[in-house]
Design a protein around this nucleic acid. Structure first.
Length: 621
RNA sequence: GCGAGAGUGGCGGAAUUGGCAGACGCGCUGGACUUAGGAUCCAGUGGGGUAACCCAUGAGGGUUCGAGUCCCUCCUUUCGCACCA
């Protein structure tokens, strides 16, 4: 089956390199790095000898060219195209049987195998560095999809080769020195090269480069970089997906649909189930499939494969910024909003969606459609709410697990503002949390008390608020704003509670601005609550039209501070001093405090450490 | 095996990033108001001790005047990758 693929591997290096500058969770960066799987090494050409004396170049990839002299056999993937040609007649029955067996196994079965298997092909290959003849085996521990699908096996310095060699009695030749040697297991670290011809005596890291140079001079190999990332199969044999805009012409072959005819739309059809023949359901819609070739106008057929679901999700966010642009993907106005400043989503998208979206954006950058390579500057992964279901342990909520909690009851009892704030209050948003509704009453009580506080002062505002009232207002706003920026939602809820505790214990009427600042600040967290009280305060426009208020630092720094006083690192008391007081004054004040003074009696003060406004530590002895 | 997190009261979690551990809330205890309390309000609440004090952030070391925070060695746990040569 012919399928369309996107050459994402072309972007492997950039997709990897750009990760550094992104403000993303390390975990996600690590997952993408791992998925791209860059490894530096060399491609080396061995010469395989066929049964009738034929010679075939057999390329391998290795990250350890410095161990080339330790290669004692080679292994090809069972699917390797040379297997047939290299297999000796007397080995073919066994080889074919092995190939068939591997073919019948699923990837999962193949990966789950614990013990190495393989068969000898009967063929030999010549090691280019020492002209030695070594046996060629096939085994499923070599994957056709990675590197060249064949390896040189260096059992002394590779764990997998070691296991294989032990099992099949193949030679293990040590070529890098190590403390432990290779008697019981492979030694995979660096060392000094031995048994390595002219390279003997060189440190392995350096010899690695030397051997690559040597191979390049002799045209037997070259330094190269390999990636685990593979090209992206972009075809689906389904109805629901964007049709791939290609027309197959008998004469011209595959021809791209003219830009003026884009996008190709799905035809309206009655049956969109899979055909069962492996062909797309679109293939049976003759009116749609049969078209004229854009090049020669001759009879031609549309491509009937469609794009995967990933396609749209790879660029939708660009379109969100300019949904009405007719002639361009992105309007001038839309450009102002992009790239996305903060992208919030589950960690399940760490690799596929986020890698594909980066790839699309990078491509669009290259063809000049967007002005940035990276779509999402910041990424935030929220945690999951888990709950104990049938399995008896906390799991992600899902219908199939039968552990879904319906919020309707809570909304009815406490209101959706309480529920919303409680969900934020449960814990840091990036962590998983086990659902438990015992705490919602606390949030509900807070909202009721806040409602009461605002209501009883409605219209009775103080015209001359006390400084402490203003301090509370500015402190609240500072806390909420800063914690919002750093996504510490649970502590924002605490800030509101602390504010209310403080202002209500003052027994003073607040000023109008303090109340309104409180309402505007809480509006994103308890929208109905805030809007209702806002209207009651006499506003005819929505609270959501308001600007986010600003705070004045003058009210969030204090003239006097409480300084903790330690003696030998142990807290012995606190004193209140002027925030700018010099160390001498603070010490003087501390030594007058009876709770502290008793520890200073009759001892010598060796050292004083004063951290301004925070702590005074006296070292005595 | 490799990689990234997490471990703090009875519970969820704070801690200005090296400076008063336990903010805020739940729960619990006592009290007030009440015919009543699964409402509301007030007070208390890490452990030990009559007390002065002592002990305490998974365990053990270290650095420092000072460590939940930094370093080393472990333990437990969650997630991701896993024959990638």
């Amino acid at each position: 089956m012919n399928q369309w693929m996107l050459r994402i591997t072309r972007y492997a290096e950039r997709l990897l390199r750009n990760l550094d500058a992104l403000e993303w969770p390390e975990k996600v960066k690590a997952m993408q790095t791992n998925w791209i799987g860059r490894s530096e090494g060399a491609e080396v050409t061995f010469t395989a000898l066929g049964p009738n004396g034929s010679r075939h170049p057999l390329k391998i990839f290795t990250t350890r060219p410095d161990t080339l002299f330790g290669a004692t056999y080679m292994v090809m993937a069972p699917e390797h195209p040379l297997v047939r040609e290299l297999t000796a007649d007397d080995r073919s029955a066994e080889v074919n049987a092995y190939v068939e067996r591997v073919k019948s196994e699923s990837d999962v079965e193949r990966a789950a195998k614990t013990e190495k298997t393989g068969v000898f092909t009967g063929a030999y290959a010549i090691n280019p560095v020492n002209a030695e003849k070594i046996p060629v085996w096939i085994s499923d521990y070599v994957l056709m999809a990675y590197g060249t699908g064949a390896i040189m096996a260096v059992p002394a310095h590779d764990e997998r080769d070691y296991e294989f060699a032990k099992k099949f009695g193949l030679e293990i030749r040590e070529v890098i020195t190590s403390e432990a040697g290779v008697a019981t297991e492979a030694s995979v670290g660096e060392g000094t090269m031995i048994n390595s011809g002219e390279f003997t005596g060189r440190p392995s890291a350096e010899g690695r480069k030397g051997i690559v140079q040597w191979l390049e001079q002799k045209e037997l190999g070259r330094g190269t970089v390999n990636y685990k990332l593979r090209d992206w199969v972009f075809s689906r044999q389904r109805y629901w997906g964007e049709p791939i805009p290609i027309i197959h012409c008998e004469k011209c072959g595959p021809v791209a649909v003219d830009e003026k005819d884009l996008p190709v739309r799905l035809p309206d059809i009655e049956r969109y189930q899979p055909t069962g023949t492996g062909e797309s359901p679109l293939a049976t819609i003759h009116d749609w499939v049969n078209v004229a070739c854009p090049k020669c106008n001759g009879p031609a057929k549309r491509e009937t494969d469609t794009m995967p679901q990933w396609a749209g999700s790879s660029w939708y966010f660009l379109r969100y910024a300019s949904p009405h642009a007719k002639d361009a993907l992105l309007s001038e106005e839309g450009r102002k909003w992009l790239p996305v400043d903060m992208y919030v989503g589950g960690v399940e998208h760490a690799i596929l969606h986020l890698l594909y979206a980066r790839f699309f954006t990078m491509f669009l950058y290259d063809i000049g459609v967007v002005g940035f390579e990276e779509p999402f500057k910041r990424l935030f992964n929220q945690g999951m709410i888990t709950y104990v279901g049938k399995s008896g342990k906390a799991e992600k909520m899902s219908k199939s697990k039968g552990n879904v909690v319906n919020p309707d009851g809570l909304v009815r009892t406490f209101g959706c503002d309480s529920l919303r704030m409680y969900e934020l209050f449960v814990g840091p948003p990036e962590l998983d949390a086990e659902w438990n509704e015992h705490g919602i009453e606390g949030v509900h009580r807070f909202l009721k008390r806040a409602w009461h506080w605002v209501s009883i002062h409605n219209g009775q505002w103080s015209k001359t608020p006390s400084r402490e009232m203003l301090v509370q207002r500015h402190l609240l706003l500072k806390n909420v704003t800063e914690r919002l920026e750093s996504f510490r939602m649970n502590t924002i809820v605490s800030s509101f509670m602390e504010f209310l505790n403080d202002v209500s214990s003052m027994n003073q009427a607040p000023d109008k601005e303090t109340v309104e600042t409180f309402l505007v600040a809480i509006a994103p967290f308890a929208p109905h609550f805030a809007e209702e009280l806002w209207q009651q305060a006499g506003h005819s426009t929505s609270i959501f039209q308001e600007k986010w208020p600003v705070w004045d630092e003058a009210y969030t720094v204090f003239d006097t501070v409480t300084v903790a006083v330690q003696v030998n690192g142990k807290l012995r008391g606190t004193i209140v001093v002027n925030a700018n007081a010099a160390e001498d004054l603070v010490f003087e004040s501390a030594s007058k405090d009876p709770a502290i003074a008793r520890y200073l009696d009759g001892v010598q003060i060796r050292k004083k450490v004063y951290v301004k406004g925070r702590i005074l530590n006296l070292v005595v002895g």
